[in-house]
């Protein structure tokens, strides 16, 4: 028995050593349901802004990367239990999250959240829909409006279309293409609200080495303008850039 275990351990060690020589394998966790940040494209692959950013960061930091999808609900517990090493899922940097995980510097500027409704005079203190457990849901609850929570961002928009909710409150960049393609049915209402400190990579607090590598890579992308180019490609020319 002991011999057997020893053999397993040896294989394990040599496996790890092999990985070391090829550069470290880093697993990137994303949601895959938040276009244009991240989504599953029609070929069944993870695509979107974060896919391109993630691949570029891995190339610059000389890491071998693998993509995984995970439900939004359990995305932080699964990071902490080590099922992947980095969260790259349009996650806003907030104080609460920062207490349990670490964030890289942001790779997307502090995003505006906005209300979208069917009419321009919609009552934003009425029933407002949002995705459950997002910073937007918390904001709506505190704003005094009646919060209607849905499991997916998609459903929260559908609720406005069918009249369940007066307005939906979500990331402006997520809503923009939906509004643009609705043929005037949907429109932005009220002033955009700044929430969170931009979107960053989520990491375990103990992974300081990985964090440094990725921070350097993000900085280099910011410096040579390639990050801005990607933002413009996915979010249009009017989006805030670095």
């Amino acid at each position: 028995m002991k011999k057997l275990l020893l053999a397993t351990a040896l294989i394990a060690v040599s496996g790890a050593a092999l990985a070391e020589s090829h550069g470290q394998t880093v697993r990137l966790g994303t949601e895959g349901a938040y276009p244009p940040f991240n989504f599953i494209n029609d070929a069944g692959e993870i695509a979107g802004f974060e896919r391109e950013v993630g691949d570029e960061l891995c190339a610059r930091a000389e890491l071998t990367c693998e993509w995984v999808t995970n439900e939004w609900d359990s995305i932080i517990p699964n990071l902490q239990s080590g099922n992947y090493d980095v969260i790259i899922a349009g996650m806003s940097i907030t104080k609460e999250r920062d207490e349990v995980i670490d964030f890289s510097q942001n790779y997307f500027p502090p995003a505006a959240s906005a209300y979208v409704a069917l009419t321009a005079d919609a009552d934003l203190k009425g029933t407002v829909s949002a995705q459950v457990s997002t910073i937007q849901a918390g904001y709506v609850a505190e704003s005094g409006a009646t919060l209607l929570e849905f499991a997916t961002p998609d459903e929260s928009v559908a609720a406005v279309r069918n009249g369940e909710a007066v307005a939906v409150f979500a990331d402006k960049d997520f809503l923009a293409p939906i509004v643009a393609e609705s043929n005037g049915e949907l429109m932005f209402v009220g002033e955009p609200v700044q929430l969170g400190g931009g979107v960053g990579l989520g990491l375990r607090e103990s992974d300081t080495e990985l964090k440094d590598k990725l921070n350097a890579a993000i900085q280099s992308m910011k410096d040579d303008g390639s990050l801005n180019a990607l933002i413009e490609k996915h979010f249009g020319p009017e989006t805030a850039k670095f």
Binding site: P35, P36, V157, P177, E181
Partner: peptide, 12 residues
């Protein structure tokens, strides 16, 4: 759920 959800022009 993933396939049925409404798709913007970001998709094919």
């Amino acid at each position: 759920r993933e396939l049925g959800g409404s798709k913007t022009q970001a998709y094919e």
